[in-house]
């Protein structure tokens, strides 16, 4: 690890100011950034921790929306998002207890790892990403592997998840990391069903439009029968071929629909 300055502001305004420098970088729970620093693969001049900002911490429920402060750790989401059980369950399946007590929602969404869990919940729920300057619809936020709509210095402060009629996240584990080899988040809002897939595509999290249409017409596992996603553009690595991941998208979608009932 190289040396760096460290700041831990208590307000969003101070954090924005602290991030104004040239090579400052925001630090959430550090579950990706800190290992990268230890490997000397990153050399920020300053780290600005966001976990001391009380307005960015905690889970609240109001008017059918669960709002999660961006600096809330996964364990607190698991404990506090009971109004949205599929979201709480997703948080409870991330990593291990140590990870869940350090890693944050905002950190996960800002990083947008193609195998992370939260992006599928945000996209699958049609969530709103709230930053210090604006609100971004999830459909506009995710822009490919490790790429988002965030501007330089922009901080996610909260995420608003509309509570669906029912939902489920089904994750098939990559055997080593236990990230999602393929994970599918299905959420039903009246006649509108959203299906978001993580872990599978080289473009990161994506919506499976064909399945959404079929499930909006008939919200049942068998509605997926005969549907498939193309293996083109799926991730191929030592844990699974593109064809295997494409197959898992279908299997996990069916399981999510079955579990959402």
């Amino acid at each position: 690890m190289y040396n760096f300055e460290f700041e831990k502001p208590t307000t969003v305004a101070d954090a924005v100011a602290a991030l104004g420098g040239d090579d400052a970088q925001a630090l959430g729970g550090g579950q990706t950034l800190i290992p990268t620093l230890k490997q000397r693969l990153n050399q920020p001049g300053k780290l600005v921790s966001l976990t001391g900002i009380s307005e960015m911490n905690g889970v609240s429920v109001d008017g059918g929306v669960v709002t999660v402060g961006a600096a809330t750790c996964h364990a607190d989401v698991e404990a506090g998002a009971g109004a949205y059980p599929a979201l709480a369950a997703l948080a409870g399946q991330i990593g291990d207890p140590a990870v869940r007590n350090r890693g944050t929602v905002g950190g996960s969404l800002a990083n947008n790892d193609p195998a992370a869990c939260y992006p599928s919940a945000a996209l699958g729920s049609g969530a709103t990403i709230v930053t210090n300057t604006r609100e971004i619809a999830a459909d506009d936020y995710f822009q490919g592997m490790f790429s988002t709509a965030l501007e330089e210095g922009e901080i996610i402060t909260a995420v608003k998840f509309p509570i669906p009629d029912c939902a489920s996240y089904q994750k098939f584990l990559q055997p080593a990391s236990r990230f999602a080899l393929t994970g599918v988040f299905v959420a039903k809002y009246g006649d509108n069903v959203r299906v978001a897939v993580t872990g599978a595509s080289e473009e990161g999290v994506f919506r499976w439009a064909e399945a959404e249409a079929a499930l909006s017409a008939n919200f049942a596992p068998e509605a997926i029968d005969g549907l498939s996603v193309s293996a083109d553009g799926m991730v191929g690595d030592i844990h699974g071929t593109p064809a295997y991941r494409a197959h898992l998208v279908g299997v996990m979608t069916k399981r999510a629909v079955a579990a959402a009932h």
């Binding site: 055997p175 080593a176 990391s177 690595d237 030592i238 844990h239």
Partner: peptide, 10 residues
């Protein structure tokens, strides 16, 4: 390729 616990499955 399997040079860490992210890819080497214990």
């Amino acid at each position: 390729l399997s040079a860490s616990y992210m890819d080497y499955a214990m």
